[in-house]
Design a protein around this nucleic acid. Structure first.
Lengths: 196, 196
DNA sequence: CGCAGGAGAGAACGCTCGTTCTCACCTTGC
DNA sequence: GCAAGGTGAGAACGAGCGTTCTCTCCTGCG
């Protein structure tokens, strides 16, 4: 049984590339077999079913995505810069040549209606991102409300960049984020009243 | 040949409900047959293939969605109110019991990687929404830049509401939109400088 | 009244998918 | 050296898909 962990990683790597670029249902286990170099038998002793492979793919993707984001944000020092860094990182992500949106939004759209596990995984991922961004925002002394608004800008940029094929939404979202941060800055806070 | 148009509408109505709630690939032509009450033979003489049915479904959905939005917006008078009305309408949409996000984002995630036609249809729909919102924004005397930012808020609200299952993102997006409109109002315009 | 033609219901076909099985082969411990 | 068990390659299987075909029935017109 040579290196179960390495084989799993190889399978998940191949599955990620295929699932992300073509969608999940359009990719058969034969394609994963060919791309990973593993035999079907080995694949099925590493993952009991395709659904298990899909869930582990989402799990791995969640870990890697959040880690890459946090790594970039950590390279910035002030809290305000760290919030803006999120949108800068989005821009580099959108610029990847085979960028095709958020794997969790895509999976939710494709399977969320028929697979509660996939829907739950998407929910967890988005919740984790929201918690992370809200923490960055509250570290600047601003309210969580702003964090939720910035989440919407980021999510909107993710799907708009995917469909238009341009990284520009990241810049637009960053500019809007700057304006909202200004609106919520200590100096302006007393004057802000957006209630009807 | 009794009423080809009515039969098409019946088929498209059934297809819409199934495709939207369960995804496209998960719905077979048999399911469309059962839901529409049409025979398979009739279905195939109305639409030459499943792909044609899918594209017409997206076409119809685009028309109906934009018409419903425009109808709600038109019931408001001032340009500023009309912009905000977009987010109010989103809230009522998100509150529908079987809301499951934007059919075009979902279709793009599921089939955009393997069907250029589906990807193009999603692009067209989002472009039309963007043009509409930008027109509403410029009618208030504010720049198109703001329109693009509000598009991101709306798109983010659409997916966040779908995944979390709550209509609350519409309210958060509306509040953020109000703040951005304030930031871009004539009074503040000279002082806004968000460049790095 | 008879018959041609189209419609409905669903069986059938070819294909692909997820999953399992076969079988020859290779390793490995005694 | 050899039995035993695990492996790889791919065939096989059952189910489900999109699509087409069959067959029966109904309809409407001469």
């Amino acid at each position: 049984m040579p290196d179960r962990e390495a084989a799993q990683d190889q399978a998940l790597g191949a599955a990620e590339e295929l699932f992300y670029s073509r969608g999940i249902q359009a990719v058969g286990m034969d394609a994963v077999r060919n791309a990973s170099g593993l035999s079907l038998k080995r694949l099925y002793q590493l993952f009991p079913s395709k659904e298990a492979l899909v869930l582990q793919f989402l799990n791995r993707r969640d870990r890697q995505w959040r880690q890459a984001l946090a790594h970039y944000v950590d390279s910035h020092t002030t809290p305000d810069e760290q919030v803006i860094a999120v949108f800068e990182w989005l821009h580099t992500w959108f610029s990847e040549p085979d960028y095709r949106g958020c794997a969790f939004i895509n999976s939710f759209g494709e399977l969320g209606g028929i697979s509660p596990e996939v829907a739950a995984q998407a929910r967890r991922h988005k919740q984790a991102f929201r918690d992370y961004l809200v923490a960055l925002v509250t570290a600047t002394g601003r309210p969580a409300t702003l964090g939720d608004q910035l989440v919407l800008l980021a999510e909107g940029a993710i799907t708009t960049a995917a469909i238009t094929g341009s990284p520009q939404p990241a810049t637009q979202a960053r500019d809007a984020a700057r304006l909202l941060m200004l609106a919520y800055s200590r100096h302006n806070r007393a004057h802000s009243d957006v209630s009807q």
